[in-house]
Design a protein around this nucleic acid. Structure first.
Lengths: 136, 136
DNA sequence: CATGAACCCTCTAGTGGCTTCAGAGTCAAG
DNA sequence: CTTGACTCTGAAGCCACTAGAGGGTTCATG
C-alpha cells in the first residue's frame, strides 16, 4: 500500500523535488522509510499534498497554505478565519488583474508608436521608453 | 554637472541598491569616479536608467530590457524585432490576466462553500481544497 | 580643529518557490 | 553481472532585488 516518492508525485501533479522541498519546509510530515532507506508515503500524505497543490494552483503563497493547513489540523476551531483569508486572497487577485489590464493598455499605446520596420534610431517605441514624461 | 548615486536614484524612481545591481548586471555602463571614490553619473546614465525603469514598470523581465537596450544601442538596425518583442509581451500579459480571472472564479466558487463560522471540521472550503476531483 | 550627520563604498546574505546538479545508493529485469 | 530506472543527500542556481555589516568621505556647525 505505501508508495514511493515518484508515485506520490504522479498522483498529486507535483514533482519529486517539490515534495522534498515541502518536507524540508515542514508542510508534509516525515514519511516512514523502507529497508533501503526509500521514503514511504500513505493516504494521509496524498491528501495533504493534494491540498497544498490545490492551494498553489489557486496562487496562494505557501504561508497562506500553512495557515490553512493549521485550520485543517484543528477541526474544532472556528473556520471564520478561513473565510477571511480567502476574501483577502480574492481581493489580491482582483487588484493584480486591474494592474495588469492597465499595463496592457500602456503596452498597446506604446506598440502603436511604431507600425513600420524602420531603423531603431527612429523607432517610436524606443523613443517613448526613454521619455521621462510619457509613461507609455 | 555629474551627480552622485543618491541623486541619480531620486531622478529615476529607483534606489541606490537597484542601480548598483543593474551595474553589476552590465545594464548600466561603469560610471567615472570622484577623488573620494564616489560614482559620478551623467545625462547618459540618467536616460538609460529611466529607459530600464520604464520597461520594468511595464513588467518586462530584465532579459527583455537587455534586448531592447541592444536595439537602442544599434540605431541603424531594423526595429521590427522591437515590435515582435512587444507583441509577445502584450500576449503574455493577456494570458496572465485570463489565468487570474479564471483563478478568481475558482476562488469565489470556493468561498461560497462556507458562509457561516462553523468548526473547521465542517468547513466546506477546507473540504473542497482536499478534494481531488473538485478543482474549486 | 573636532564632531556629527548624511551620504557613499564593498561585500555578503536573504527573499520565495522551487529547479538543477553532483555523487552516491537500491532494486528488478535480462 | 550488468543495465537502467528509480531513489538518496546536500548544495547551488534562478529572478530582481532588498537588507545589513563595517567601513570611508564630505560638509556644516561648534
Amino acid at each position: 500500500m505505501p508508495i514511493k516518492i515518484g508515485e506520490l508525485a504522479k498522483r498529486t501533479e507535483s514533482t519529486v523535488e517539490t515534495i522534498r522541498y515541502y518536507e524540508k519546509e515542514g508542510l508534509l510530515p516525515e514519511p516512514s522509510r523502507s529497508e533501503g532507506n526509500y521514503c514511504l508515503y500513505g493516504e494521509k500524505h496524498i491528501e495533504r499534498l493534494r491540498f497544498i497543490r490545490h492551494c498553489r494552483t489557486l496562487d496562494m503563497a505557501l504561508g497562506e497554505v500553512r495557515t490553512l493547513l493549521r485550520f485543517r489540523d484543528a477541526p474544532d476551531e472556528d473556520c471564520g478565519d478561513v473565510n477571511i483569508l480567502l476574501d483577502e486572497h480574492i481581493r489580491a487577485v482582483e487588484i493584480r488583474v486591474e494592474e495588469l489590464m492597465q499595463l496592457k493598455q500602456h503596452l498597446m499605446t506604446l506598440r502603436q508608436k511604431c507600425e513600420s520596420t524602420a531603423p531603431t534610431s527612429s523607432c517610436g517605441i524606443l523613443r517613448a521608453l526613454s521619455d521621462r514624461s510619457c509613461h507609455a
